[in-house]
Design a protein around this nucleic acid. Sequence first.
DNA 1: AACCATCACAACCGCCGTGAT
DNA 2: GATCACGGCGGTTGTGATGGT
Length: 249
Amino acid sequence: MKMVHDEVRKGPWTEQEDVLLLNFVRLFGHRRWDFIAKVSGLNRTGKSCRLRWVNYLHPGLKRGKMTPHEERLVLELHAKWGNRWSRIARKLPGRTDNEIKNYWRTHMRKKAQEKKQAISPSSSSSNCHSSSSTVTAVDSSPFSDAGKVSFYDTGGLHMEGLEDEKGYSMDDIWKDIDMSEENSIIKPLSLSDNYSEQGCNFSCPSMASPSWEYCWDLLWKMDDEESKMIFTTNQLVSRYEYGKTSLTG
DNA sequence: AACCATCACAACCGCCGTGAT
DNA sequence: GATCACGGCGGTTGTGATGGT
């Protein structure tokens, strides 16, 4: 027998790995990542497990495009806090720091480029500093080199889809923030938390596959019986495999 | 149809803060 | 107080998907 166990796996997660991780997170909570990584038999690092959970498997995750409101929120919060993605993410229930970070990089860079083009280099119409002076982290933002024209400068923020929201004041935004904070944010998950369907309208991309649905079904149905009847990993995986084959034919 | 550019997302890496010993 | 292990965060990279030429 080869000792392959010591090798740390990297790269994309398989569905089986996801199932395993989910199972163990449900058993041990979502804190002791190193422990979970070890006992689960996943040859992954604790960090990797945590990342997978936080960015992909967490039941509260919202998927799909950012709404105009979220876009605006990201803009405002980034203006306020800079690249504090996790902090910003806390204000957007269901969105992860990674997601926001990626979103910012792609969308905002695009916007910045558009803006840059709109403002011809020669025009140099006084880099109005406005509020962006506080955005220290913008240094590292993709368009920080855009002729010192920060995205927030120009007072523009001409976000498509936002312009029709002109009546949406910052007060409204902050109200929303407060509400979402009270209602939904960061309620620590514990084993006793049944973070099943309640309040989490999440849909996982790869869940489109029937096997995943089957699998999730299995997992979420475990709730009450969990303490009495703990699936062993093998049981779960084999059931998953069964479901997969039975569904896919 | 083939190629290229861009987008969108997942994952890794390194650093830092914090708690335990 | 020093050291270590771990978790969290931000930056970066890799890759598949998509759209345009």
